[in-house]
Design a protein around this nucleic acid. Sequence first.
DNA 1: GACCGCCAAACAATCGTTTGGTAGACCCTC
DNA 2: GAGGGTCTACCAAACGATTGTTTGGCGGTC
Lengths: 219, 219
Amino acid sequence: MDKTPDDAAKTAQGPDTDAAETPAEPPSRAARQDSRREAVLDAAAELFAVKGFDGVSMRDIARRAGMLSGSLYYHFPSKDDLFAEVHLAAVARVTARLDAALAVAPEEPWARFEAALLAHLEGLLDRADAVAVLSPHFPTERDDLARRLAAQRDAYEDRIRGLLAECGTRRDLDLGLLRLFVLGALNWTPVWWRPGGAADLAEVARALTDLMRRGAEAP
Amino acid sequence: MDKTPDDAAKTAQGPDTDAAETPAEPPSRAARQDSRREAVLDAAAELFAVKGFDGVSMRDIARRAGMLSGSLYYHFPSKDDLFAEVHLAAVARVTARLDAALAVAPEEPWARFEAALLAHLEGLLDRADAVAVLSPHFPTERDDLARRLAAQRDAYEDRIRGLLAECGTRRDLDLGLLRLFVLGALNWTPVWWRPGGAADLAEVARALTDLMRRGAEAP
DNA sequence: GACCGCCAAACAATCGTTTGGTAGACCCTC
DNA sequence: GAGGGTCTACCAAACGATTGTTTGGCGGTC
């Protein structure tokens, strides 16, 4: 019953890789290496996002990636390092999404702000990469690594502040606090938002932008 | 080295209990029982809040409460049940704080709203009870228990919605979304707020109320 | 003597990680 | 193009440590 750990891996990554994508040349050695490595990263990202760092075992990750737990240590030196790489990749992906959205967004600052919120929400909820922002609970003693993660996160979060600054907000407001309120509202969405629920992501981004802009008080 | 688990318990709970508080009568049997039980609950609350459910072991809790891991099972049948009780107690405490704050708050709806936010923040950050709201990650298979926790949390969160409704917000706004934004901003504070930092809790509550009310756009 | 609250020690299971081995793709040489 | 060698990516199995939990007993208060 616990001999072949395939059943969980089939639906996730199993034979899709070479079933429809590569008809001609067999994947090069380097390509296959990256593919397997990324399969591990994907499996780890989904699991970490749902159950947290301590809630996921190396055996869980290995099973979902279609290998055995010891094999993970060929690709990653430790669970901490694996998590760090997942974290970094997720932040990078959300950042890329933000850049892409801003590239095609209109010039009006609040519209840009709304586009950024939507990109953030999509990066947060489309795939299961909530680890990126949702994990201030990184439980390592290796402070240098934790600092690197925090630094990348901070750099991203400061871009929200920059977008707000361009909107020309009231002078008596603390931009730092505003940024934290926005990020709190955004990063809390994985707790309650479900695909196909009452509001889609565009609505959420629009509503939050409207609230940030005009407030809720009746005029 | 692992024989006497006292060193960690001393600073937290150790001899304080009977050092300064009970000079005359020895505490009754029932009182002492409750006191030890509550010591366990306190220790568990602080640890769960910081490291999450999976990050805390029964031995950690026992050490901080000044006993051994097996002894916990005299008071609580399992780790799940212990967590559930911590969770329920924390929600109840935040609710009580909210009631007390509203009892002495002025009549003006936005002032009441701000008072509620402050009470929530204090309940969240003064002690380490962040478990109350911060743990949608309760990793049990016992769905009935998870539902009970969610129900109590929802009842509390709906009071925020009620307070907002009394403020007479704009008709075109979704009160449910507003509530979620507020709770997101509030419940995200444990990630960044530190006592003695730039803004104290009253400032945070005031700033968030002001933002919710008037928005950030320059008039 | 009964019961309460806890200790001391152990239980099986699971944890992150290490070790040794090996099937197969690759490269070079004859 | 057959054969030997190398390296890659993994398996199979184990390591000690830690996990949640159970059991039996014991000092203290009633």
